[in-house]
Design a protein around this nucleic acid. Structure first.
Lengths: 345, 345
DNA sequence: CTGTTAGCGCCTTCAC
DNA sequence: GTGAAGGCGCTAACAG
């Protein structure tokens, strides 16, 4: 960092010691500086265009001001919404946030957490689903333990993970509730657009949906469950495949909204009407839902709030403390994509 | 950072000097380490769970591995798309990216750039529109000069700014082209949903649109230009106001897609059809456009590519070098929201 | 209230 | 090929 003025130069210019300059510019532990001197230091700093070196500062203080956020894909509205909450909450605490996209690749996720560890991030927030791979989980757990050992605060969004604070989204309950709601609307034949099997979030929602239906005496046929990428395009592909097979369902549940949106596109392209020909429901209640036609029935997850809460949860607990698990409730929102149909008991 | 193992400990455990350990773990300037020793060091490091302290490393090396991205609002699809490109390109270079949202507040933007300066970011990327405020521009320019002086690479996305590399989006040309295209489709009466006057991007697009129309002999009435926040809700509000006034236009141009989407919602709510009652066009071609009805005519801006290009541009030039300005071409995409109407010459 | 002196953890000329 | 020593910029005890 050539040509960068240092505290020492400011101190010299102001004719004071390093310590005094430091205290004048970044008031340290209680100690205060005489007004005249402080003024001189400030003037000198302004004159020379001084700017603290955050790295040096962090080093000496033993704590950084960075929180690391790991998401699947920042371009996904789900992740973007969470990120916006995280960034806002962090900003309020004077923290900077680095965001990394894993593109759903466990290896990349691990690499990112490693980087965060090296950066000695004050907090690391894991958003998005965990992977159902013991190998990956073990590595992740170990890495997070190191982060905690280094004094880093941690919070995971999604599902309960051994050993770290988590904001658990009520995926099962939400999906079950949705299933019951759809059943009460008269639907009896369902299909599910699921994500990859390793994605816990998807699995939980699928399981919850199945349970919910079972509670109503409806069984979810295995051939009516189709897996794909948990993305908009994944939803499109899955729906297209379902149609190819000759869809045998009056209502389709996509485990997240972006998949539902993709499914809607596939339906539209093949000339099927929602909800006339097929009813459709998603999960998350991402912002863009209010702008698509028809409005999509879904399960609301307060994404931005969750982002904020994750920062609060992480920063509000000691890294060494026992992990706290908080469950975020979800709420079924019925919209025009599932108007209901006369029950045929 | 308590309980964190240091290079010194690893060196001790391996029975070698600090220098050797350093070289073995992060191969420095050409120097190499004997295989047996290297193995011992690596083993010791793994044993103790060693992880470099990136801050200390950066400090000693004199260069960080962080690129700072400043956007208006990461929850906006426009920003999210750019961010995804930036993050991807940065990851390829082994760089970490911190993202900050300004929420269109110049003061916050300045604070963020300051923070990036303090972090001695390797690169800072300014996405989104600059503000037409000389005061703000001066401060920003000064700050960026400091960043450059500290060895930081810089790139700005949007419009040409004095003194920094920029990826200029062809806002004027794109809007003018769109205007001509719409004219050729038979539209003669236009209204524009603009952003705040200080937003250069909005001003440029508005000016381009006006010029384009003028070139076709059509004048854009001042009362048909309405300003609002450059957000989805801003578009909604602006459109609602336009309708209140008793809309007198056959085609509405929103200076960006999110505003157009908001406008569409307002139209729909009040029972107006697009394009039956009013034609509508936007700018940017954000991803979600393919999922709304009707498909929106717009001007395509390759957002993710721009994000990648911004990183390349910043990192590919010397901080001290003369700023390079590269203009990103745009392309008009006609869709169903502007089917055209018989010209009445 | 102010100045002095150690480090923070690591890399990098230098000698060997 | 390996080790010893200085320094990156700043803060935090300690004295005065």
């Amino acid at each position: 960092m050539p040509g960068q003025v240092t505290l020492a130069q400011v101190a010299a210019a102001a004719g004071v010691s390093l310590a005094t300059a430091s205290r004048a510019l970044n008031g340290s532990t209680g100690r205060t500086v005489g007004a005249p001197l402080a003024a001189r230091v400030l003037a000198a700093a302004r004159e020379l265009g001084y700017s603290v070196n955050a790295y040096a500062q962090a080093m000496a203080r033993g704590a950084t001001t960075t929180v690391g956020l790991v998401v699947h894909d920042i371009a996904d509205p789900y992740a973007a919404a969470i990120a916006s909450g995280v960034i806002a909450a962090a900003a309020e605490r004077g923290l900077i946030v680095t965001v990394a996209s894993t593109l759903s690749d466990p290896a990349i996720e691990i690499r990112h957490i490693q980087a965060l560890l090296q950066q000695r991030a004050t907090a690391v927030i894991l958003a998005g689903s965990r992977f159902a791979d013991p190998q990956v989980t073990a590595t992740t757990t170990e890495l997070l333990a190191s982060v905690a050992a280094a004094g880093g605060h941690i919070a995971s969004i999604g599902q309960d993970m051994v050993g770290v604070n988590t904001l658990a989204i009520a995926n099962r309950d939400g999906a079950a509730h949705l299933a019951r709601t759809l059943h009460s609307l008269g639907y009896r034949n369902f299909a599910v657009l699921a994500g990859p099997e390793q994605l816990l979030t998807s699995e939980e929602r699928l399981a919850g949906f199945r349970d919910g239906l079972a509670g109503c005496g409806v069984e979810l046929a295995a051939e009516n469950i189709i897996g794909a990428q948990a993305t908009r395009d994944g939803g499109y592909v899955a729906m297209a495949e379902l149609l190819d097979r000759g869809l045998d369902a009056e209502c389709v549940f996509a485990v997240n909204d972006v998949m539902a949106v993709g499914a809607m596109a596939a339906l539209r392209e093949q000339g099927h009407h929602v909800p006339g020909d097929v009813a459709l429901a998603g999960f998350d209640d991402i912002a863009m839902l209010r702008d698509i036609e028809p409005p999509l029935t879904t399960v609301r997850v307060p994404l931005a709030d969750i982002g904020r809460a994750a920062v609060d949860l992480a920063m509000g607990t000691e890294p060494s403390a026992a992990p706290v698990v908080r469950t975020v409730p979800t709420e079924v929102v019925v919209r025009a994509s599932t108007p209901g149909r006369p029950a045929e008991e």
